[in-house]
Design a protein around this nucleic acid. Sequence first.
DNA 1: TCAAAAGTGTTTGACCTACACCCATGG
DNA 2: CCATGGGTGTAGGTCAAACACTTTTGA
Lengths: 235, 235
Amino acid sequence: MKKTDQSGYLREDSSNYDKDAFEKPSVTVDVAVCTILDNKLHVLLIRRPFPPFKNYWALPGGFVNIEKKESLEDAARRKLEEKTGIENVYFEQLKTYGEPSRDPRMRIITVAYYALVPSSHFKTVEASSPEEPRWFPLDCLPEKIAFDHRTILFDLLIRLRGKISYSPIVFSLLENKFTWTELQSAYEIILGKKLLAPNFRRKLLSMYNLKEIEEKQKTKGRPSTLLVFENEKEF
Amino acid sequence: MKKTDQSGYLREDSSNYDKDAFEKPSVTVDVAVCTILDNKLHVLLIRRPFPPFKNYWALPGGFVNIEKKESLEDAARRKLEEKTGIENVYFEQLKTYGEPSRDPRMRIITVAYYALVPSSHFKTVEASSPEEPRWFPLDCLPEKIAFDHRTILFDLLIRLRGKISYSPIVFSLLENKFTWTELQSAYEIILGKKLLAPNFRRKLLSMYNLKEIEEKQKTKGRPSTLLVFENEKEF
DNA sequence: TCAAAAGTGTTTGACCTACACCCATGG
DNA sequence: CCATGGGTGTAGGTCAAACACTTTTGA
């Protein structure tokens, strides 16, 4: 441990900074990928093959590559791609978790991200790796969850519930073309309550540009018209 | 650089983890303290005495003390106290900034926090240190701002504007006792627009428990009744 | 008695809620 | 022709915007 001046600045009488004046933590990124399956919001977890928390379920994640000057979000996207093959999806920073005791090995600070994907994006995810990536319903997580990842998932749900009311994140969970029912169902799943169709439609039409396309989708009853999300409405 | 297995996990055939398997970034915390002065939202900046960004204005902050197992929020609170003497205030994590180029010296990831204080809390802040801590209006920041701190302050304003509508953060900016006018003014300052008093009062009464106390406050015209924020309303 | 700021009441209209109803298809 | 799910119209209530108004003080 080298000396620093009392204000906590790195010394710089010479123009060389002392990169090791302070002990450093490790920094990881963790990614909570969400999708809708069976009318539930699911999140992808992997089974940890090593201690600590061996055989516990955890968010996919890993160390940021400092040598390659990788940005935090790039690291998160890379980790997701490496572990699940999922790419090019909605991505946003959630929060940073840095309690000293969160990892028993050493001080690790993790920057949590979340991603939203339509459920068509990942046919090949399952069983492709020794870590057995698996989708779990957010309201029915396994008992054994590693680190503080349960807290992260809790915070995620809060974030999604808040954000859905003013931001077009739902469309990241849906295919390009979708029906009113699918759209409404996505809202209901995230908010955890039933909505009334007519009111729901009026509200969404007033918020976003939703274009009806000619194509129809067959169902048991009357076929539903397909919609496309064009862009956010100006105001 | 030691070897890791291909999945990016630390090797752990032995039960000793290799703490230096990955190069680590430095981790700092930065704090944006806000208060209301002269009917404007102000933020506290200090003048950097050393390069990089010598003489530029920056958020108070510094390295997290890893040896002492300091949590991120504790570090942020400590830094604020060290540099400004401000303690025991509303505190919340804002976002983490980790672009590889944000600090020219080396890779530094910073976890930004914000704090809200009533303007009575800091008589002694100014000029008490070589760093000349000074309050700047958020809408009129100095030209020379260090690092990506302008971005942080931008994100902060977005956060405050969003959060004020569903959370009682305003009360952290006010004294224990305050007038309707002060309360409304705080909203107007953060939202950047005028509000109508009758509607504003009805709205806040429906959201929070505001108790009128006997005491009055003198002004030029009719004296105003003082209020106390009791707690959030159940529902 | 007037200016200045605090505080109240009331109308209007937008928007949300709830529900009843109609439409298109498969069996 | 009936069951099923898609889709629409409308009456009623709630709440926020806007504005006019009253009250209380100091000068």
